[in-house]
Amino acid sequence: MSAVFDKPSLYQRALPVLQGFDGLLAFAVFLLACAGLLIMYSSGYDHGTRFADHGRNMLIAGAIMFVVAQVPPQRLMVFAVPLYITGVTLLVAVLAFGITKKGARRWINLGVVIQPSEILKIAMPLMLAWWFQKREGQLRPLDFVVGLVLLALPVGLIMKQPDLGTSLLVLAAGLAVIFFAGLSWKLILPPVLLGVVGISLIVWFEPQLCADGMRWPVLHDYQQQRICTLLDPSRDPLGKGFHIIQGMIAIGSGGVFGKGFMAGTQTHLEFIPERTTDFIFAAYSEEFGLIGNLLLISGFLFLIFRGLAIAMDAPSMFSRLLAGALTMIFFTYAFVNMGMVSGILPVVGVPLPFISYGGTAMVTLGLAIGMLMSIAKAKRLMQT
């Protein structure tokens, strides 16, 4: 009789909360977070409270991940439309009376200064996954057109600020949903081929296109300068090309095995600009070399493949599209950041996931991992 009134143990009470968590995904995040803390201490220990703040941001992101992972995917779907409308409305408000810093109007004061474009990194894939879920089994070409319009509206508003880095991330997440929803290759290949031809022509005619006084249509002057600097950093080695040149020097000087923890001269003599944020990969490469880079890239690949595996096993179309898009966000983050630091992509403000310093970006990453955990958990609970 007393057994009926026995209180469950702490383990028994915690088991329903922990049950279904994807251990492989959590392990990948843990490894990347450890690498981030390691290089953040080396590059930011003398940078005020940067290391302590980075650790705090990771804890906040971890708490958000844990909470969001408890929310079933069908509940996440309820937030799609309100979050998208809120995000787009705030983007319009930014254009009207936003805060301008360093020539860009990206922030708005709502009692707390926020950057609404960050909301769209999550709201965009949520909205498009909801849209295609509602049309499952009866998709028409017009549905893809509507999806592209839903994507083009926030991307255009973000580029207007201007914020090329965030617009690329939102665009990549949205296109991933549209692709996974079943967009025909016949519609994908022509713009891809057109892009390849366009890039080839820009490289070929770089001396004429980047000559003094030449102005490109559509792009802002600073965007044109970034592309021209990418093609030839030596045009302005102490100005626009300084970031790229110093980043490549740091990566090359690391060699195969690196200079060792806290032994990077380019980093600690402050030759690397933004060494704790956008260019932290250069600091990491200098200290840990090619071997360290391969291990870091392997960690990101492991996370990406695990995310795609979760998407393939997702219990619904909404979950599958959302998981695939969130995974592609991590791929875009890592690819663009490493590419710009290595000198193969223009310099844009895109952090390296779990490695770069940044509170807002870390919260976004925590949300994304939490949603992936939620989708993986829903599938496992269905199987039990």
Rank of each mutant, 00 (worst) to 15 (best):
K7V: 10
K7D: 06
S9H: 09
L15F: 13
V17P: 01
D22T: 03
F30H: 00
A35G: 12
L38P: 02
G44S: 12
D53Y: 08
A61D: 06
G62Q: 05
A63L: 13
F66G: 02
V67I: 01
M77H: 10
V78R: 11
I85A: 05
T86I: 15
T86D: 06
T86L: 09
G87N: 05
V88L: 00
T89C: 12
L95E: 14
G103V: 10
I108L: 09
I108M: 04
Q115G: 15
S117I: 08
E118M: 11
E118L: 12
L120T: 06
I122Y: 00
I122A: 05
I122P: 01
A123E: 01
A123D: 02
L128E: 02
L128A: 10
G137E: 07
G137V: 00
Q138V: 12
L142H: 11
D143R: 11
A152T: 14
G156R: 02
P162T: 11
L171Y: 02
G174S: 08
L175H: 00
A176W: 03
A176N: 08
F179M: 04
P190G: 08
V192M: 12
V197M: 05
L201E: 06
E206R: 13
Q208L: 15
G213P: 00
M214D: 07
L219G: 04
R226D: 05
T229P: 03
L230H: 03
H243M: 12
I244W: 09
K259A: 15
T267Q: 00
L269W: 13
E270H: 13
I272T: 04
I272K: 00
F279H: 13
L301T: 10
L303W: 00
F305G: 02
L308E: 01
M312N: 07
F318A: 09
R320H: 01
A325E: 02
T327F: 03
V336Q: 04
G343K: 07
I355S: 02
L365H: 05
L367W: 09
L367G: 08
G370N: 08
L372E: 07
M373Q: 11
M382P: 00
T384M: 05
